[in-house]
Design a protein around this nucleic acid. Structure first.
Lengths: 241, 241
DNA sequence: TAGTGGTCTAGACCACCGG
DNA sequence: CGGTGGTCTAGACCACTAA
């Protein structure tokens, strides 16, 4: 077995068995070098792979952290794929140069999360979260409806004007937090009846449903969202063996 | 700009502009070290990233190759995500331990590809391809219908018995070819009328449609497939910034 | 300012491919 | 067998974080 694989396996086991718990800082690169008797670059290679697999987040100058994962969304080696990039709707379409992004906000409240949302965000149900429902449009055409929950203690002072633009922009530019990764589950559904009018599609239309947990660079989950994309939205991926 | 980024950008440009063409062998690691005046490990890091982005395939002892990509499926930095793993239906479900995989073959012919299939496989329309339509089942329940095209000169002597099991198994175990990567486009559709009975789902059911080009480790496209997954099939991905 | 992870080097050795 | 990419090292230096 290769040295970096041994490190990956051992740390994966320690996360799975709870030796390293969600939001824990794991030992520094140099400490791991001593523990495993390998060089710095070997530890780095192993940690890169763990980052790609979605188990840890890293912040230069600060450390490496176990992501706040519950067993239900803990990636397994068997199924997990990794993807290079995570970006919000605004940024995705800005990059394409062409079209104007707009939003219609249907819900914006603060409430207690239900059990599922609390679990996805790894928070206690008595903490408050924002609940947001937005429809995002390109050139006035609705493309996706997003239901989003975010803990208020991580994302303070969110205002309506932030929702009309890019929430990610507010988080990164104003709050100076770093968004590092996301775990997604994607499936096909039929658009629910109560969203037909908001999305301006006929009854029975298909939608790509994306169930996402977003993480900051210290491994803390800051966002849970369920979104349904219509009008032939296509998700691209490159996978390697 | 970091050195490995400069190498990535330069080689990306050379692929995009046709200096390095599909199926070309790229200069060896040592030659690239000389060209860019950097160390071997820096070239390796750059090539790893190009592999993850889906532009090249690598084979130890042999070299690094530009994948047979057409402009239509050439990944862009903006949108491409990468994913750790590519595996066929059989292997995916074998790993889960639980349930028995079976197949029903509806089509198995050799013919000339239409323009789109020829383009996806980067072959000439006068080459022959297999055309296969299978429904894959878990414990007798149909989960996905696959339409697959493969050039016969790459995958010789494919028989009905291979289709009833795992095609990937035949390619890797019997032909000793290495499957290295796949490019996928995923969207939501309604199951077409002529597939309702084969999949045993009611009219109007949603399906996750996966449009995939598979590559060998010398960068050659060996498979184009369109598959529609039903019964809440879920695709998982982990993305990092 | 002390400590963290990130990049990069020159070079040794190994695993694999193809003639 | 020569040539390829893969792993690994010890160490220098840099960029960033947090107190």
């Amino acid at each position: 077995m290769l040295k970096y694989e041994a490190v990956i396996n051992d740390i994966t086991d320690k996360i799975a068995s709870g030796v390293y718990k969600p939001n824990d800082k794991i030992p520094t690169t140099m400490e791991l070098c001593d523990q495993y008797g390998v060089s710095k670059i070997t530890i780095k290679k192993a940690m890169n792979e763990l980052e790609n697999r979605g188990l840890v987040a890293r912040r230069r100058g600060s450390g490496t952290f176990v992501k706040s994962l519950t067993p239900s969304n803990l990636p397994t080696n068997e199924f997990m794929s990794k993807s290079a990039q995570m970006q919000g709707f605004t940024r995705e379409h800005d990059n394409r140069e062409g079209g104007t992004v707009s939003s219609v906000v249907y819900e914006f409240t603060v409430e207690h999360p239900d059990a599922e949302v609390a679990k996805k965000l790894s928070i206690n149900p008595d903490e408050f979260v924002y609940r947001i429902c937005r429809v995002r449009c390109l050139d006035g055409v609705p493309l996706v409806i997003e239901h989003t929950w975010m803990p208020i203690n991580l994302i303070p002072d969110l205002r309506m004007k932030n929702l009309e633009g890019s929430i990610y922009g507010y988080i990164e530019d104003t709050l100076k937090l770093k968004i590092s990764s996301a775990h997604r589950a994607i499936r096909a559904v039929i658009v629910p009846d109560d969203e037909l009018e908001k999305l301006d599609v006929p009854k029975g239309s298909p939608a790509l449903e994306v169930n996402q947990v977003g993480f900051l660079d210290d491994g803390v989950a800051f966002e849970y969202s369920v979104s349904r994309h219509v009008r032939d939205y296509t998700f691209f991926s490159v996978s390697t063996h």
